[in-house]
């Protein structure tokens, strides 16, 4: 089953407040799509609508269609299965207060893996895929909270990968990190795109330009423009997009 994400005529409300207005967007497989736009324009809202983390918010309501791999996200789908297929990494690294091993094993255990050997294999593979294995392989039993911020964020990516998702939603994954950790995560994300559908929210224009294949620009809850990253940054078709990416506002 594919993991293409299709959003059609989506409007999202928090109580009486409309956070997204009539957004239509295709997010293709095996590529990186960046969401950019000023604070409060609805980037996180759209991300959390895709894996239904918005269900937690009281007064949340979505109109329109969201499908992942052709399946309607808001039509009788098993939410835990959806979230298993669509992983998420948060802005602030949030490893659980337990060992590094248990953090990565959390997802597989949640989905029923009990055998020690299987867990160990899954943990090692995920940590390798997240490019953090060499840094933590000697201290898997130590608390995850003893890692640096950048390591914690890569651990969170490993934790998300361990579930075996097809898509990854990253909400400003590097905004709390130093340049070196940031470039590690950028490299990592670039490698992961071969196997995953990746969406990344970022406030960093260079980052979007560097790593993404496609970019979508949002303003006040509306999708202003989207397309191939190179084109959007070199020849934006909308004045608002140009103003934003050249730093004239936002």
């Amino acid at each position: 089953m594919g993991a293409e994400i299709e959003i059609s005529n989506l409007s999202v409300y928090y109580g009486a407040v409309r956070a997204l207005t009539d957004v239509s967007l295709n997010i293709p497989e095996h590529g990186i799509t960046a969401f950019i736009g000023p604070s409060g324009c609805g980037k996180s809202t759209l991300l959390k609508t895709i894996n239904r983390m918005n269900d937690l918010v009281e007064g949340f309501r979505a109109e329109g269609g969201v499908t992942v791999g052709g399946r309607d996200v808001y039509g009788g789908i098993d939410v835990t299965q959806l979230r298993k297929r669509v992983g998420m990494v948060f802005q602030k690294p949030n490893p659980f207060p337990m060992s590094i091993f248990d953090n990565v094993a959390y997802g597989p255990r949640t989905h029923g893996v009990r055998a020690r050997a299987k867990l160990e294999a899954a943990v090692e593979k995920s940590l390798r895929d997240a490019a953090i294995w060499d840094e933590v392989k000697d201290r898997l039993r130590r608390s995850a909270l003893s890692l640096s911020g950048g390591q914690q964020q890569r651990l969170c990516i490993a934790r998300a990968l361990a579930v075996g998702p097809q898509a990854l939603l990253l909400d400003e994954p590097t905004s709390a990190l130093d340049p070196i950790s940031t470039s590690k995560i950028e490299d990592l994300v670039t490698q992961l795109k071969a196997e995953y559908t990746i969406v990344i929210v970022t406030h960093n224009m260079q980052q979007a330009a560097r790593i993404s294949d496609r970019t979508a620009f949002f303003l006040l809850g509306e999708l202003i423009e989207h397309g191939a990253t190179e084109e959007l940054f070199s020849m934006p078709s909308q004045k608002k997009t140009e103003d934003y990416i050249t730093g004239r506002f936002g």
């Binding site: 937690l56 299965q81 979230r83 949030n94 997802g107 949640t110 998300a160 579930v163």
Partner: peptide, 22 residues
């Protein structure tokens, strides 16, 4: 902090598992 709970849900855990394990 609520982010432990959210982190667990985002991995496909149920409400019950998230509360008891995270």
């Amino acid at each position: 902090p609520v982010h432990y709970y959210e982190g667990s849900l985002a991995l496909g855990a149920t409400h019950e598992r998230s509360v008891f394990s995270a």
